[in-house]
Amino acid sequence: MSASTEAFLAMLAAERGAARNTLAAYRRDLAQAEEAIGDLAIVDRDAVASLAGEWAGLAPASVARKASVLRQFFGFAIDEGWRRDDPSGALPTLRTRRPLPKVLGHDQIAALFARAEEEAAGDDPRAVRLLALIELLYGSGLRASELVELPLVAVPRDAPFLTITGKGGTTRLVPVGARALAALARWLALRPALPASRYLFPSGTKGTGGQHLTRVRLFQLLKALAGRAGIDPAQISPHVLRHAFATHLLEGGADLRVLQTLLGHADIATTQIYTHVDSARLVALVNSCHPLATRATSD
């Protein structure tokens, strides 16, 4: 990659606190663009326009993401004095609808937890660990990366809260319910003693050094559990359980601002996507509480 794109990524990390996964995705997009048209700090508008052909076979969301990254880069290049022109107008301008999140129903959540609790009835460390993992995913709405990277010291002692370091290095307090606390207590009693590991969920239950459980392994464990619970594994992921946490809280009457804080969203517009699942309750609320609801309709 060119020095200019490396400088751009360094700025994102230092000044905007971009998350590691975001930086990795941006790096891939920028590297692919440079491979196709050359150094982005000096390419002309026609070269930038040719990227539309390079991206022709991609999904609209992927094209939108790549174009967004390049627009940010070109703005940075102008600020740094590397370019006098802004060629971003030659990029595709697709408008994509944000997909609605997948959500598990209450019956599916019940089946998933029933299976996990049944398997964790004994002292099998792997089964108890999995129960603790899904309790935190659904009970506290953690992101997969936040969960697997939880340090051992994050386990609540005096108050039922976890201190979570989320996207961009921001921290937030997340409440931990009684069920999750009980599952964590069981896991800590069985967790292998690993002086080298500072993580709550180290990789392996017999100890394989100082690494934590990977996100990929968490996906695999959850999908396998879903299959054993009679749920289509394609319907479930750690993020789907996070969505279920948010959706079911809204159904129960949670405030959207509170939910924003719990989920660690910087922009409430991100949280508002969950309101689609609560439309039936909102309609019922209007029909029962609006002053006109009690007035008889005219013949």
Rank of each mutant, 00 (worst) to 15 (best):
A24T: 13
L262K: 07
A229T: 00
A61T: 10
G264L: 11
A293R: 08
L130Y: 07
T170P: 01
P87K: 02
L221R: 12
G139V: 09
A121L: 14
R115I: 01
H106F: 09
R191I: 00
P92D: 06
D267F: 02
L23A: 03
L12D: 00
L133V: 07
D46C: 05
V216P: 01
V277H: 15
F113P: 10
Q260F: 13
I109C: 04
P87T: 13
L250I: 11
L12E: 04
Q108F: 04
L200A: 00
G17D: 08
R20D: 13
V69R: 05
V43E: 03
G17V: 05
E251D: 14
L30D: 07
R16M: 00
A33S: 07
L184E: 00
R179L: 12
Y26F: 02
A296W: 05
G81L: 06
R172D: 00
T247V: 09
R20Q: 14
A116G: 11
V216D: 09
T163W: 11
Y26D: 02
V43I: 04
R257C: 08
L181N: 10
M11I: 03
T96I: 15
R65S: 04
L213K: 08
E146G: 02
L58S: 06
A121N: 06
P233R: 09
R27K: 12
L147S: 14
S203F: 07
A144E: 01
F74L: 09
R215C: 11
L150A: 09
D29I: 05
A280I: 09
A120R: 04
G169V: 08
P60E: 13
T96R: 04
R191H: 00
A41N: 00
Q220A: 15
R28F: 07
N287R: 15
G166E: 09
S140N: 10
G105E: 15
L23Q: 05
R83F: 13
F76C: 02
G17W: 02
A67D: 06
F245P: 10
A269I: 01
L9N: 04
D86A: 11
F8N: 00
A127M: 04
F161E: 10
A18F: 15
A67F: 03
L188P: 06
L249D: 09
G17H: 06
E118D: 11
W55T: 06
V69E: 00
A144L: 08
T205L: 01
R242N: 14
P192W: 00
F74V: 11
L131K: 04
N21S: 14
R228F: 07
T163E: 13
A7V: 02
A18T: 00
T163G: 03
I231G: 01
V148G: 02
I109K: 03
L133F: 08
A52Q: 04
K167V: 12
G177A: 03
P60S: 03
L136T: 03
P291D: 13
E6P: 05
K102T: 12
I231N: 13
A49D: 02
A56T: 11
T297Q: 15
A189K: 04
